[in-house]
Simulated scan of single mutants.
Amino acid sequence: MIVFDVKDWESAYENGRNIPGGTEYPGPWVAPAENFRNSANARLDLAYGEGARHRYDLFLPEGTPRGLFVFVHGGYWIALDKSYWSHLAAGAVARGWAVAIPSYDLCPDVSITDITGQVGAAIAHAANEIAGPIVISGHSAGGHLVSAMMCHDSPLPGAVQARLKHVVSISGLHDLRPLMNTARNDLLKLDMESAEANSPALKRPLPGVQLTAWVGGGERQEFLRQAALLPNIWHGLGARTACVVEPDRHHFSVIDGLADPDSPLMRAALDRAEATEPGK
């Protein structure tokens, strides 16, 4: 018999203090991100809206891009911006994809619903700049946000939905109701109605889009459960889904593979989209 009984929800969703060296993050990402940004073929701070944080960076490969890859950052919807993650564009750029990394407004200044709409607007703007198939990925809260893009009530315009091939939710949060039990909810302002309304696990997936939930084997049990939850439910609704537990990765190292074009994470994210390109 397996008994599930979470007595400390704060610890269940706390990563930094439960990972050796975890409290140092996001510091270790600053220099690699800046170095990549300074050396890459990039169009920085493209505006997708009127707000100061309504900006994204677009990293371009040599030649015509094979398509658009998007990375949406985490930070529990309350912290960080696009500048910490630029180096994670390296893997997709090396494979010939353009990569967009957006910022968005943060709670409590706006709601998670507002943020979801902003991410949709950023992806739509980048899609107008770059032709071809679209693959989107996001980490932690960003995993939630990209999963919301393939829900039946996606904020993406229909033409962009039609180009969306694959969503990769990395350590994503797919059911927001447990977060009402954490201190972060003082900033998130979730109640049962808004938590349910913003939970991809309680919605229907768009047809024809693949979902991969990717999570580190060394992550908190709640992140492992959240990763397994959405593919399980959406598989039952007819979607093509997968859940991958990558060994020896924790919540912060699990995204490292995005910087490597030959990593298991990048192969999982892009191989199938590349195989269906016209002429292949």
Rank of each mutant, 00 (worst) to 15 (best):
S154N: 11
A124E: 09
G120Y: 02
P20W: 10
D260P: 01
C151A: 14
S263T: 09
L173K: 09
E246L: 13
A242V: 04
A259G: 05
D191S: 13
Q210T: 14
F69N: 11
R272V: 11
P108R: 08
G117E: 07
A121E: 08
A227E: 00
P102V: 05
R249H: 13
P207L: 09
H174A: 04
D175N: 15
A127C: 07
P207C: 10
G142K: 03
P247C: 00
P178G: 12
S39W: 02
G208S: 12
V254L: 00
V99A: 08
H87L: 07
N15C: 11
W9F: 15
V244E: 02
P102H: 07
N128P: 02
A183H: 14
F71M: 07
I130R: 01
D105E: 15
S140L: 03
E10A: 07
E50M: 14
D153F: 13
A12Q: 06
L145Q: 02
A94M: 10
G27W: 00
A148K: 06
A183L: 12
V30F: 02
G74W: 03
N128L: 09
N18W: 08
E62F: 05
W9M: 13
P178R: 09
P261I: 12
L179Y: 06
A159W: 15
E277D: 12
